[in-house]
């Protein structure tokens, strides 16, 4: 019962993130919403796994936590430097 309430709360929070991603206004808001949605989905998968008696779903939650980070870094780098190949750092002297 309590787990079901937790699932409901997480789903409502996910809806809020999707709303923020749809209305924007800037691309950074969308990135924030995508990243935060990912974290909420990690938690949702974990709770669903315990609710339906399949804790093996936790593997997928771990993958989500990792993939979400890589996607956010790729987006961040794209927005800031307009390239995927440059190292992160202060100056682009020979880019």
């Amino acid at each position: 019962m309590l787990l079901a309430a937790g699932v409901a709360g997480l789903v409502v929070a996910m809806t809020m993130m999707i709303w923020r991603a749809i209305v924007g206004p800037s691309q950074y808001d969308r990135m924030l919403a995508a990243n935060s949605l990912g974290t909420k989905i990690v938690l949702l998968i974990a709770v669903i796994g315990y609710l339906s008696g399949r804790p093996a779903f936790l593997d997928i939650a771990i993958v989500y936590a990792l993939i979400n980070f890589v996607t956010t870094i790729a987006l961040m780098k794209f927005f800031r430097y307009r390239t995927l190949s440059r190292p992160l750092g202060p100056e682009a002297k020979d880019g």
């Binding site: 750092g89 100056e91 880019g95």
Partner: peptide
């Protein structure tokens, strides 16, 4: 390819 930048101050 772009070179690695100096590591200070970033």
């Amino acid at each position: 390819l772009p070179r690695a930048p100096a590591a200070t101050g970033d």
